[in-house]
Nucleic acid binder design. Structure first.
Lengths: 195, 195, 195, 195
DNA sequence: TATGAATGAGGATTCATTCAT
DNA sequence: AATGAATGAATCCTCATTCAT
């Protein structure tokens, strides 16, 4: 029969991350002020600084938490043979990662210019480059290389571009994955047929 | 018998647009201050206000100038039959538009969060939606609808994602277009085969 | 019959310098906020930033204006022979410099810890070192070297320590100079007598 | 049979004083934050508040501990005749006091502007004034009064100004004292000779 | 066609301090 | 004897914008 505590417990740090990500995704990083974040949480700006050293730090901490699956994916992929099957599986898992932290990836896509100057910018760019490297084969024809790259970025784009289109979300997601996998498959088939 | 003018003549307005776009594309809209633009041009901030009513106005004017080809494309497409051939041509022309104002489209892509709040945001979004509507057939299977949409966005993504990859720019551009057209074609073939 | 202008003319920059120096000297650099300076001038903080890039910049500009005589003195001294007569004249001129910008030098003395971190810190330290170098002879006995150095610093200290003591300011100033010159003279006499 | 305690025992209060003085002397009072002090000690800011009521309180407590010798000196001097010999001894003892808490006196000298607003400011100023009163004779000529005052302040200045000069520290200290005593002596001789 | 001078609103950040535990 | 969490007030500084000249 404990009374509801008047002051929030030890979850403030996490609540900051949640609210911040939400606002960052909604309005952009620059347009979201710490005042705004603080107000949403009913704390003072200074409280944010108790938990994070800078505004950028909030974003970094969020990124660290949410980009983990992509790291795992890259690490896993590095142990696999560079076959078509592996690549299809990479895309499948990437789809999971993307949809598992949609808000965050939406933020990253819509704030590229801003993020580029931030420390997570390089980090992220290199992850995407790593994934791209795992899919693309330098020996392929230019067109097929584009197919591999397009497989990756179609998923990014698909995630948001399809938001406005009616239809069951899961079905859409499956369709996007299918198209991406189709591109990779086509690239490989193409190369096998025409040496 | 006029002496050569020491200072640039009536081209200031245009020079503002050029410098602004360059800086917007490089650093993002928010991170680019009017002071910075003015300094690059060796004029005062106040001079910018003689030519444009607001910061946003500079961007709007740039957008008006550069987005024209896309408007033309949409207008033209409206007069054409919704055939595969038309759609392939739409993509081809869109490729021209994109590469013809690469800086601007790069800006739009990397500053989506910011642009969304600006008046050109809606404008632009509706143009993309219009293009997408010209390519996508609501009657198609979800997968094929995704293919149509992916054709469009692959070009956006391709434009920048391929920057880091070695190879002749023109060849890359052709390859990107080919992949995009391939997607549309595949969507149509698919639908024709499996009614 | 022109009416008194409502807005101050072009003297704002200078008025900022004056007020700033006054407040810096009175309360110290850190304790003086830009808000305070602005209020004293009946302008906005932002106005200060129109004229100076940073708070430190205000101080730098003041220092540049007021430390000129010391530079002149050093330059002049460099062209003179290192005789006792020269040194006595250095002290005399230094007295002029000090009393000519008393507020500023008082500030420098009372804010050493702060000034040390600022860019003018090094600048100033090196000037004092230069002066000291012009007065001190490394070949002298330690005691006489101290006399030379004390001649310099007695003037600094005297300037303020004597403020509380009754008496005609000009007479005090003359007495301080005399004591300083006496120290230098004694150092030289001493060295001549005991080789 | 007590185990060696892992954490420092009851000496925290003293450690705070030590670290605080060190940082105050190094960076100045205002530039030294309680966070910084706490970090150097590996405790929380709140811990400082267990031992001291305010930031100023830390400084006050340090001053109380370190200024004792000067109080003793003043008390002792009050019981002595105002002879030249007494004054020379005052300077000698003052030299001891100064060198015995060099960090603290350096702090006081370099932070005059700040200290002036603090409660120890008045305290300290009055001590120096008391010392000065013990050395200076209002009946002396202005020049000789300046000599007396200069004797006192030369020691302050000497302490730090001579830091950059090569030579044995003890020898320097002795030389500084000698010069100071010389000034007092000269003042007295002068007065005796020219009544 | 521009500038010089200024403003008002707001930004991120830091600080000394408090208090329940 | 000390901490974790938080606050309120202040800091420096930047920005888009205005307007008389």
């Amino acid at each position: 029969m404990m009374a509801t505590p008047q002051v929030r417990r030890g979850d403030t740090r996490q609540r900051i991350q949640e609210v911040a990500l939400e606002l960052f995704a909604e309005q952009g990083y620059e347009k979201t002020s710490l005042r705004e974040i603080a107000e949403h949480l009913d704390v003072t700006k200074a409280a944010l600084y108790y938990h994070f050293k800078t505004k950028e730090d909030i974003l970094i901490s969020v990124a660290k938490d949410l980009a983990g699956p992509v790291d795992d994916l890259i690490a896993w992929a590095a142990t696999q043979p560079r076959t078509l099957a592996t690549k299809r599986e990479i895309l499948r898992r990437y789809s999971d990662a993307l949809w598992g932290a949609a808000n965050f990836f939406r933020f990253m896509q819509e704030n590229q210019a801003t993020v580029r100057e931030l420390s997570i910018g390089e980090t992220f760019k290199s992850k995407i480059a790593a994934l791209n490297g795992l899919l693309r084969e330098p020996g392929f024809s230019m067109t097929d290389q584009v197919r591999c790259t397009a497989a990756l970025f179609s998923m990014h784009a698909g995630m948001f571009a399809m938001q406005n289109i009616e239809g069951d979300p899961e079905e859409k997601r499956a369709a996007i994955l299918e198209v991406a996998q189709g591109l990779i498959t086509e690239a490989h088939r193409d190369q096998t047929e025409t040496p």
